[in-house]
Design a protein around this nucleic acid. Structure first.
Length: 300
DNA sequence: ATCCAGGTTGCCA
DNA sequence: TGGCAACATGGA
């Protein structure tokens, strides 16, 4: 994505890094709760009027009051980067194909941002995501954090950092299974070993093209195209990547490929590659969440 | 009880 | 390429 569009700049009201307030700039809509609770990250918990969690090892609390974003514990710049407040959301929305289903999703989810998550925890969380509901993925994430992650105190209580790959590699497959991972345990364990050993260089892979990055990720145990696309989108900021899960598959077949009687899997894949445009990942996430919370096919 | 969940993998027509 | 079954777990 292009550099921050600073229309109506983000203005610092409070100067302290440990506790701050920023005024959300421009006319862009932003919805913190929607952003943190839309199936991108899995560890944020409701705390008072805001959310408690960890970013880059900083535990803390984030809260939105109208156009003010309040933070404690997490440095302002860390939070701003994580929340992708610099994304040009008008540009993103303007790039979408004109489709009633998508317009409805934008109207309902337009305040959501695609996060810039730490690579390892994003990869690990989505390895555990297969055939699980969002609530289960959260439960596994919290269990792993509590058992193997570092505890960090914050102004609103303790939180746990996602365990480093070295820690999970050392813990062993059986220990991971105790967090309810089931058959996903060996996948997470073996991937943790590859990352810990440096054989899988997640940070180094930032320089790769989309295609090469996808291929590298798919070489990891438990990572197929769908999970790879999630990590590309939610971690590597590859905003054109479109994860195709059961929801998106159904939406594309029923609303975007209606001319075909029974779209082939290849047709769905091809559409998702380019049909949603250069910021297709955003379109995908709006459609996914809108459908998941009940704005299903019937409403369009 | 039965079904399904932000899939991946191996196998076969 | 496309279809299929196995793979663990838990909530509705």
């Amino acid at each position: 994505m292009k550099p921050a569009r600073r229309a109506g700049t983000t203005e610092v009201i409070g100067g302290e890094d440990s506790e701050w307030v920023v005024e959300l700039g421009g006319g862009d809509v932003f919805d913190l709760g929607l952003t943190l609770n839309s199936g991108q990250a899995f560890h944020w918990v409701s705390e008072g009027a805001g959310w408690k969690g960890v970013v880059d090892g900083f535990g803390g609390w984030l809260c939105q009051r109208g156009r003010e974003l309040h933070g404690r514990g997490i440095p302002r710049r860390v939070a701003e980067r994580y929340l992708a407040l610099d994304h040009d959301i008008a540009l993103v929305h303007g790039s979408f194909p004109n489709h009633p289903r998508l317009r409805a999703a934008v109207a309902a989810c337009g305040g959501m941002r695609i996060l810039r998550q730490p690579l390892w925890e994003c990869l690990a969380a989505f390895i555990t995501s297969s055939m699980k509901r969002v609530s289960h993925i959260s439960a596994m994430s919290h269990c792993l954090r509590g058992r193997f992650g570092k505890r960090v105190s914050t102004p609103v209580g303790d939180v746990f950092v996602y365990p480093e790959p070295e820690r999970l590699a050392q813990a062993g497959e059986a220990a991971l299974r105790e967090c309810g991972l089931g058959y996903r345990a060996p996948n997470l364990w073996r991937t943790a070993e590859l990352v810990a050993s440096g054989e899988a260089d997640l940070e180094g892979w930032r320089v790769l093209s989309d295609a090469d990055l996808r291929e590298a990720l798919c070489g990891l145990p438990g990572v197929g195209v769908k999970v790879a696309n999630c990590v590309m989108l939610f971690g590597y900021e590859r905003l054109a990547a479109v994860p195709v899960d059961v929801w998106i598959d159904r939406i594309v077949r029923e609303s975007f490929l209606i001319s075909r009687r029974r779209p082939t899997p290849a047709a769905v894949r091809k559409f998702c590659e380019s049909g949603f445009g250069p910021y297709g990942g955003y379109a995908q996430q709006y459609l996914f969440h809108h459908a998941r919370v009940g704005g299903g096919v019937e409403s369009c």
